[in-house]
Design a protein around this nucleic acid. Structure first.
Lengths: 210, 210, 210, 210
DNA sequence: CATGAATGAGCTTTCATTCAT
DNA sequence: CATGAATGAAAGCTCATTCAT
């Protein structure tokens, strides 16, 4: 997913940027400190990335790739389990959604700064996001729609909307937790449980075959 | 240019700050451009706000006040309607939540500039958020918990968590719509409907007497 | 010595300025914090002092007055002691210089920030010092010359020079101690002793009748 | 305008800073005017100095180096003279101190800009003065102690104190002359003579073998 | 006598970026 | 491929001072 074959320096820059991003946040990611952390000059970064935007975009892209792996890995677990015993589809759909939602939630909380740069940046910034990366990012969200069945009164176009709703609901909880906006009297664990249960309930209401 | 009256410079500053904030993001909100947009000097801003933090905090506080009015007004409508006809409690609780959720959703989309600064700013800011303002902000979120009944297997402490979950779910949809992060093939109206329905379904599962 | 009959506020300003000066140093003496410490507006200060320069000048003048009192009081002690028993002049002159030098030294170390503003400010600043105040300041230094005898090969004009040298020598020690420029292995007390001894030795070499 | 060669911009900055410092005082030494006097941008200064402190410290360090050369050169002259004829130690010690004191005095008056920044800056700066530079600075002052003999009632630890006293006495005269604080009726030459004589008399009272 | 409001100039420092080599 | 040098713009903030009331 990450463009390979590039130079070592490019990877080193991304890696260090990631580290700074995670440790100090998006605001502290500036070119010269980054360069000196990598061990090259600030000018060198521009050999590999057109500008800071491009660097961040690459970082987001990378994050989206990681999230995709994380989510598909979770679904693979579900598939294996389903394959092993002959679990019926109803349980299967709910369980798949539970695994997917849990994976999404946990990725966000485990990589808050990644999550921030991936999903909480100002829209102005995303306007410049390359279409090709955008497409890669969208795959993650489509996983949610794919867990929902189109049968029983659910129109095909509704499936996407419903998927988006499930995702947006999870995103609400994750982003508020990351931003420290949730009342401290409410344990993150409890909110996680409720948010995931809700995602599951949507999937359960609309069982899916595969 | 010449502003008359008490301290509408303060308001003008807030208003302009809000505008810049939603159009360009927080990083672009800087004192001198803000000042010149308002029509005063950068120094003057410091007559009305101790520093940039205080300015942002005032903006949040103002927004929280407006939201509170908006939400309580919506609930008042529900109360009146319930008083008129003798609707039973079940319908009542669901309907109240529908009104509350709708009001919240619509406030967000109608005042994206406020919403962004209120709920989508970097956590770093909230660390310095004054306790007194924090209390005012919390009132809004408690309205959600208050619509949920503590009966039938719902523990009192769960009520707060469940309220937070309903809120966070709505927040997810609102914030993603504001940030233009939702797939353009999904109409905002549809996502709104789904998000509100879900909030209602939580309330309906836990009917409340008042 | 300090202009009296003025308003209470003028005194309050000077008093507070002095306090800030002593506690935080010359650099931290700025008009608005000063005003708010006094309990008036920054504008009000300008009713009593033409500008910041004038305020500082008044402070210096005040300090010079204090120093003068301090020094003459020390000499008065010497006079009384000399009047009581019939001490001869030689001892008298040396003892008077010891008291004078000690008093000068101690004033400096006891009021370092005063001393700084009185004697260690940039010359540029003193260019604007009013002549009338300058004359008052000079009286302090003349006290040193006055302890030196004009006899025995000392020309009258040399007396002033010698007085200035004694003073400058003391000033060297005081100012370096204040500025923390003296090696920490050398106790201030020891340097004081040596500096005062030296001043005394100059006076002893040139006995004076009164 | 276009400067060639290695890093004479660094020197140009130091030189200009020195000039501003003596003409206008520390408070007037600000980065942008300094830069434009040098002929570069304010940002460029930060390529050569970490910050304003480091710039000042470099200035002090440079001055201390110059002073050290000046003083040791003067002592070398004394050594040569002593080697030529078989002057006895008493005269030698006194003469050495006279040369040292004269050299110190003349350095101060010849390089007021250096002297001011070296010895007359606010103590706040010295707090941040790097230890390594501090050691270099101390060598200058130790030269004074080294001219004083540890015999005849002078304890070894007193030698340092006595050296400091000689230095502080000279410093008093130099700094007051530089700061224009000495009564204009007293010729600088006269004060110089008296101050140096006094330094010599201390050394003469405590003859030294080497 | 006193003030609230306002200002212009200034501060140190950091930023992303470019260009000649 | 890589660099050192340099830059313009901008940041948040404080300063002494003025003016109309």
């Amino acid at each position: 997913m990450t463009r390979s074959g590039g130079s070592d320096i490019r990877s080193a820059i991304l890696q260090e940027a990631r580290k700074v991003l995670v440790e100090q946040g998006y605001r502290s990611l500036s070119m010269r400190p980054l360069a000196s952390a990598v061990g090259c000059t600030a000018t060198s970064i521009y050999l590999y990335f057109k500008n800071k935007d491009a660097l961040i975009h690459a970082l987001i892209d990378e994050g989206m790739g990681m999230l995709h792996q994380h989510l598909t890995a979770a679904l693979a677990v579900a598939d294996n389990a389903a394959g092993a015993n002959g679990t019926d589809n109803f349980v299967d759909a709910a369980e798949r959604m539970r695994l997917l939602a849990s994976a999404y939630f946990d990725f966000g909380l485990a990589n808050p700064e990644y999550y921030e740069v991936m999903f909480m940046l100002h829209p102005k910034f995303m306007e410049r996001y390359p279409a090709e990366m955008f497409r890669r990012a969208r795959r993650n969200l489509e996983l949610f729609a794919r867990q929902l069945h189109e049968g029983e009164g659910m129109l095909p176009e509704d499936r996407h909307a419903q998927g988006a709703q499930v995702w947006s609901s999870l995103h609400g909880a994750v982003s508020l937790l990351i931003a420290n906006r949730v009342d401290i009297r409410i344990p993150a664990e409890k909110l996680r449980e409720l948010a995931i249960d809700q995602a599951v309930s949507v999937a359960a209401a609309h069982p899916q075959s595969n």
